[in-house]
């Protein structure tokens, strides 16, 4: 229990540090954000307008006051208003975040159902043609960048075969079938690389565990091979695999940008890119913060799962 509380404390501290770093990053960047924002047309910005924008953004106050205000607002889940359309950043995030999460979860489901069984099978048949073929496919899948996979999928499945639309999004409540059809390609593009990662991790981990002394003990006990595999090998072998999966899911929180862009999927990272292009600071800061907090939370969840699987950690 104290173990759990300590991990929770560390996670909360990390979130606070992340929020502070993002705040400071914005303020220590060369140039005045207000000036930068208004000078995008190329002509020198009007001094009065800069001053007005500075007040509006709260940039006129001393740094520590701004910091305190920002933190106070954060505690109330207030991320400010977008500079593009003046809508609350929180609204945009709550609308788009579920779509990105759905994409990631679908990809993770695919990776777990493909990568883990194949990885275990390849490890059991190490050195055979099955192992060589699956390992080569995994290496290839890892080498193709995600936006290349996505673009080629659009070309093959939408352009040539005309099985699915090239991209887009329909709410599940409006048309469940079309929603899933549109989900298939972006989720598949992410899931392919993720499956390869899961495959390689599982294979290496199972091979590693099979050399452990306690597996030899199980064999010395005369336990049957399938039971050794399930009870002694896979359970321990999956622990590092789960960690890696969680870490990858975390990187995907920001990494779906490319896939959302290719398939025109209106997720969270898509709005991040447009915010970056428009230098919409409140939006960028809000999204970065939310994703980082999710990332830290995910790592916390991994620690808990680890504790449930391995009794040695619970101390």
């Amino acid at each position: 229990m104290t173990w759990l509380l300590r991990r929770l404390g560390v996670s909360l501290a990390l979130i606070w540090v992340v929020a502070s770093v993002v705040f400071l990053a914005i303020h220590f960047v060369p140039g005045d954000p207000a000036e930068l924002l208004l000078s995008q047309g190329g002509s020198a910005p009007d001094a009065a307008m800069v001053a007005e924008l500075r007040t509006q953004l709260g940039l006129a106050q001393p740094l520590h006051v701004q910091y305190a205000q920002q933190m106070w607002r954060l505690l109330h889940f207030d991320l400010g208003r977008s500079m593009q359309d003046d809508s609350p950043v929180v609204d945009e995030i709550t609308r788009r975040l579920p779509r990105t999460l759905e994409l990631i979860l679908a990809a993770a489901l695919m990776a777990v159902t493909i990568g883990i069984p194949l990885g275990t099978a390849a490890a059991m048949r190490r050195g055979t043609w099955f192992d060589r073929v699956t390992s080569s496919i995994a290496s290839l899948a890892l080498a193709v960048p995600i936006f290349v996979v996505g673009t080629l999928m659009v070309m093959v499945f939408a352009q040539w075969l005309r099985w699915v639309p090239a991209g887009g999004f329909v709410a599940f409540t409006k048309d469940p079938v079309q929603h899933l059809v549109l989900l298939a390609m972006p989720a598949g593009a992410i899931g392919l690389g993720l499956s390869a990662v899961m495959f390689r991790m599982t294979r290496a981990s199972v091979l590693d565990v099979m050399l452990k002394d306690y597996v030899r003990t199980a064999r010395a006990k005369g336990v049957r091979r399938p039971r050794i595999l399930i009870c002694h090998v896979v359970r321990t072998a999956l622990m590092p695999v789960i960690t890696v999966l969680a870490l990858y899911l975390g990187t995907l929180l920001g990494g779906t940008v490319l896939v959302e862009f290719v398939f025109n999927w209106p997720g969270l990272s898509g709005s991040l890119v447009s915010a970056v292009n428009a230098r919409d600071y409140p939006q960028v800061v809000g999204i970065v913060l939310v994703i980082s907090i999710l990332f830290v939370g995910l790592n916390f969840a991994v620690d808990i799962i680890y504790g449930l699987l391995d009794p040695r950690v619970r101390r």
């Binding site: 990390l14 540090v17 992340v18 770093v21 993002v22 990053a25 914005i26 960047v29 975390g250 990187t251 995907l252 929180l253 920001g254 990494g255 940008v257 490319l258 991040l272 890119v273 915010a275 970056v276 230098r279 600071y281 960028v284 970065v288 994703i291 980082s292 990332f295 830290v296």
Partner: peptide, 20 residues
């Protein structure tokens, strides 16, 4: 380094691109 690792890599890149 721990703080840097709190940001997913592509997100970190996007944040810096925004600033620079």
């Amino acid at each position: 380094i721990d703080v840097l690792l709190c940001f997913p890599p592509l997100l970190l890149a996007l944040l810096v691109v925004t600033l620079l």
